[in-house]
Every structure is written in structure tokens, then in C-alpha cells.
């Protein structure tokens, strides 16, 4: 059973609901917000292990949210998965610059999302362990 805190940001409550159930059923702790601005506040206060965000949202879009996350020292390293109903909304260069690790097109599969979250957190954990080992030596 995986562990970790996931922040889900989407203006569609049904999507938040279904993602929350899927992740919770698989051992994750889930917090959620319905727009980018609230999502950023939560990210700063809760420091999630990963953010799953929609692309188009009121008040603050998913892209703006990621930009803000990267600007803040506390949240700049949080990996992001973006859900989008619009294909090719973000240029490849921008994806790399903002370190958006995964793009999932809507309609998406909750199973696929879960797999992406687990993969990203697994690699993150390995990376952190490597850093700790190097520091110990």
C-alpha cells in the first residue's frame, strides 16, 4: 500500500471526488481545492508530495498554479501531474521548464492516474534516498 499526500485541484467536483476515492482506496492521503488559488494556499500550508491539477480552472488556471509553485521555495520541488481536456495546450519547452512530469488527457483512467502518481512518488523517494546516502558518506 502506497503512502503519501496528494493535492487534487479541479473545478469539477465529480473529478475531485472520483480521484479522491481512487487514491484513498490505495492508501494515499488526499486534500483538494476547486481552483488554482486555493490549491496554491493548500500546497504552501500542507506541503503535499504530489499535485494533480486540472488545466482550465476559474480564478487561477492549472498552468498559473504550477508557475506559482515553482516560484515558491517551499513548493518548487513538488512534482505535478496535469489533467487536461485540451490537447497540446502546453508547449514541450514549457512542460520541461515547469517540470510538469505527466500530462493526462481527459477523459482519463483513474487507474492510469494512480499508476502515474505511484511511479512519480517512487522515483522521488529513490532520488531523496540517494541524496541522503551521499550526505551520510
Amino acid at each position: 500500500m502506497a503512502e503519501g499526500k496528494v493535492l487534487v485541484v479541479d473545478d469539477e467536483v465529480h473529478i475531485i471526488h472520483v480521484v479522491t476515492i481512487k487514491l484513498r482506496n490505495n492508501g494515499f492521503q488526499v486534500i483538494s481545492a476547486e481552483n488554482g488559488a486555493d490549491g496554491f494556499k493548500l500546497a504552501c500550508s500542507e506541503k503535499p508530495d504530489i499535485v494533480v491539477t486540472d488545466f482550465q480552472m476559474p480564478v487561477m488556471t492549472g498552468l498559473e498554479l504550477v508557475e506559482k509553485l515553482r516560484q515558491s521555495e517551499a513548493t518548487k520541488d513538488i512534482p505535478v501531474i496535469m489533467l487536461t481536456a485540451r490537447d497540446f495546450a502546453v508547449e514541450d519547452e514549457q512542460k520541461q521548464e515547469l517540470q510538469i512530469l505527466e500530462f493526462l488527457s481527459k477523459p482519463f483512467s483513474p487507474k492510469e492516474l494512480l499508476r502515474s502518481v505511484e511511479d512519480i512518488l517512487y522515483h522521488k523517494e529513490i532520488k531523496e534516498q540517494d541524496v541522503k546516502t551521499k550526505i551520510t558518506y
Binding site: 481512487k22 481536456a85 487507474k111
Partner: peptide
């Protein structure tokens, strides 16, 4: 795609037995 995403996700959850 937005309502379609909900329909697809909830259907998959039902099929996978996630609605317990």
C-alpha cells in the same frame, strides 16, 4: 470531454469495484 471524463472515470471505478 469534461462530462465524458466523469462518465468514463465513474464507470471504470464501478467496473473495478472501487465503489465498495
Amino acid at each position: 470531454k469534461t462530462p465524458l471524463a466523469s462518465i468514463a472515470a465513474y464507470s471504470e471505478m464501478l467496473l473495478d469495484g472501487e465503489a465498495r
